[in-house]
Amino acid sequence: MESAIEVKDLAKNYGEITAVDHISFEVRKGEIFGFLGPNGAGKTTTIRILTGVIRPDSGTATIMGYNVLKEPLKAKQIISVVPEMANAYIDLTAWQNLMLIGELYGVPKKERQETARHLLKEFGLYERRNHLVRGFSKGMKQKLILCMALMTEPQVLFLDEPTSGLDVESARLIRDTIRRYNEDGTTVFLSTHNMQEANKLCDRIAIINYGKIATVDSPENLRMESSSLKSVEVSFNKPVLANELSKILNVTETKKIGDKIRLYTNKPHNVINSLMDYTRSKSLMIVSLNTLAPTLEDVFIKLTKEHGKD
């Protein structure tokens, strides 16, 4: 058994809306697998199916060989979840929340207490352990929810946008923790709409939109594929023909957008230099200049176009 998660032909509709559209993929043991997609792509729905919260309309999913529909308890026993919505019990203390989760996974009392103490210290919540979660800040809640997920030693850890809305430092702490558990052998399934985050953490990334997976590849390969989607947007004090600018070296495509011209390129730096030369030679003035990273939507559209062919 090589794969930690195996998904075949999974689908889920909400009335008219197709949240997940017959997707299949596989997550290898020991890898950090990124599920990257814009809002409404179907990330949360997929995670809720895999963690046994909702049933799919069709398809199968196994986790470490356990079918999540037929042996839900066995599958749930070896996974942990950091769900999208903060949902610790706000009327319990941090400590009581951790004890509850430990009990629900059948962790013996002594071990429960030790793990909780250790985790709370690590995440800087130990001093607040006997406070009600009601009074916690968003970041503190999110850290506690991660602690709850780590009360067992999960074989597969699901995280649904674990760093969204957190400050830089908290986000880094969470990323470091994910990496460390992964090094110790935990397979990680991470959903995010943040490309940088996926690049930094993941071994492989699935790009999902409109409930469909466009591609599954390493961050490096995805970067190469999408690098031609970088662009420079410029406007001048006098009208300039877009055609004129397409002659600049390294520019693959130009587009007129309002009074601005967008130049697609994989070398924005060089293009900016050439633009400077151009303005000088034509005695123009640059009014605005921006470099744009490819949006997820761009990458997705490019990839679906390409992968739709084969």
Binding site: G52, V53, K74, N87, G106
Partner: peptide
């Protein structure tokens, strides 16, 4: 309503 039911259902409890 508070989202804790989802948390409970994702734990290994029948």
């Amino acid at each position: 309503r508070s989202g804790t039911l989802e948390r409970l259902v994702s734990t290994p409890v029948s």
